[in-house]
Amino acid sequence: MATVRFTRNIQRHVECPTREVTGSTLRAVLDHYFQENEKARGYVLDEQGRVRQHMVVFIDGEMVRDRDGLSDAVEPHSMIDVIQALSGG
């Protein structure tokens, strides 16, 4: 199963513990995670199911390419990091 970790900053608003979930695409993995934590979905994805503009997701250290469709492949033991797209300041 893939492991999903979230930025510390999101925890102030909604608890997002690190969890192992199944799925062979990013969409499937995040859907499985959010099924158990529906409130967190809207903090990461917008209502059209896309990664929010200033959020970014890495799979095994690689930034995901398909931010709208979330079709990027996930390996059985992938590490997925959901973080804020911070830049300077």
């Binding site: 900053n9 999101i10 409130k39 903090y43 990461v44 917008d46 209502e47 059209q48 929010r52 200033h54």
Partner: peptide, 28 residues
């Protein structure tokens, strides 16, 4: 919340306590 989007909170006790409630969502 910027990165985390728009949220709505409701208080029924004059701003002492708040609960996050539903946010308007555009349809597909």
């Amino acid at each position: 919340h910027g990165h985390f989007g728009i949220k709505v909170h409701r208080s029924t006790d004059g701003a002492e306590t708040w609960q996050e409630i539903a946010v308007p969502q555009y349809p597909p």
